[in-house]
């Protein structure tokens, strides 16, 4: 529960990152709305057959499909980049004990920049490793029925997320060399050595997905009416992300204090 306390103490950070996520998604949605509205130009969907309306629209204007794909791909990429860059900063913030003196902006910025290169490098190694893990896991479970195979692949993906967190902690709080593939592989080693911690983190990561998926399901089921709920779910998932990173911090050798992070 200490990890949860750590995460909730950083609520202002959660809010800031959530707002950045909202802004990014809103810009994407705005592009699509403007695209459609410009084409409709005074015309209105004639009935409640929204899905058919969309089919007719995309048949006449296939560019919309490309715009949607680009919007979603950009969001995926931005999500990845945003968190690759922000994760070391969040880890530094979460790593500060409640009774420790607050970071000065300069010290925090310096510590972040100091670990940023390593964190980005180990994230890149992990991206490659994750692809390998998914392929190997996919091959391993290929002969199993889909109802078993797919959940197993999801478990492997969640486990590789935990491994990435361990590598990030090693880089940010332990000074490990992020550029070395060893650091990335060691993330998996820690995950295997601390199975209970990894399971807890994987559960939190799974919960993040579930919260996001629940929001998306609500939006789909209401035909877009539940956007506010989706935004709330995103806030919840971001907080859960902080919680997971705080859990990962429990493998660090000693808590860093302000000013001695490097």
């Amino acid at each position: 529960m200490a990890a949860l306390r750590r995460a909730s103490r950083a609520w202002r950070w959660v809010v800031c990152i959530w707002l950045a996520e909202l802004l990014t998604a809103t810009l994407g949605g705005y592009g699509i709305r403007s695209h459609i509205a410009a084409v409709m130009d005074g015309f209105v969907l004639p009935d409640d057959h929204l899905l058919y309306g969309l089919v007719e629209f995309t048949h006449a204007h296939p560019q919309l499909v490309i715009s949607i794909v680009v919007t979603l791909a950009t969001s995926t990429l931005l999500g990845f980049l945003l968190w690759t860059v922000l994760a070391p900063l969040v880890l530094l913030r979460l790593g500060r004990d409640a009774d420790a003196p607050a970071w000065t902006a300069t010290a925090l910025g310096g510590a972040w920049l100091g670990s940023l290169g390593g964190a980005v490098a180990t994230s890149a190694w992990h991206l490659g490793l994750r692809i390998v893990v998914v392929i190997i896991a996919g091959q391993a479970v290929a002969s199993l029925p889909g109802s078993i195979g797919l959940p197993l692949v999801i478990v492997f993906v969640l486990a590789s997320t935990c491994a990435l967190d361990f590598s990030r902690v090693a880089v940010v709080t332990g000074g490990a060399r992020g550029a070395s593939p060893r650091t990335a592989i060691d993330g998996y080693a820690v995950a295997l050595r601390r199975p209970l911690l990894m399971l807890a983190m994987a559960a939190v990561a799974g919960a993040q997905w579930l919260v996001v998926a629940a929001g998306l399901v609500a939006v789909l089921r209401t035909g877009g009416d539940a956007l506010a709920l989706m935004r709330a779910c995103a806030a919840g998932a971001t907080l859960l992300g902080f919680f997971r990173l705080a859990l990962a911090l429990s493998v660090r050798p000693a808590a860093p204090t302000a000013g001695d992070a490097d």
């Binding site: 809103t26 979603l72 969001s75 990845f80 996001v212 989706m230 935004r231 998932a237 992300g241 997971r244």
Partner: peptide, 14 residues
Amino acid sequence: VESAALALLVGVGP
């Protein structure tokens, strides 16, 4: 689309 974009942003994120 905005909801899906948000889901992807947060889903691949933290």
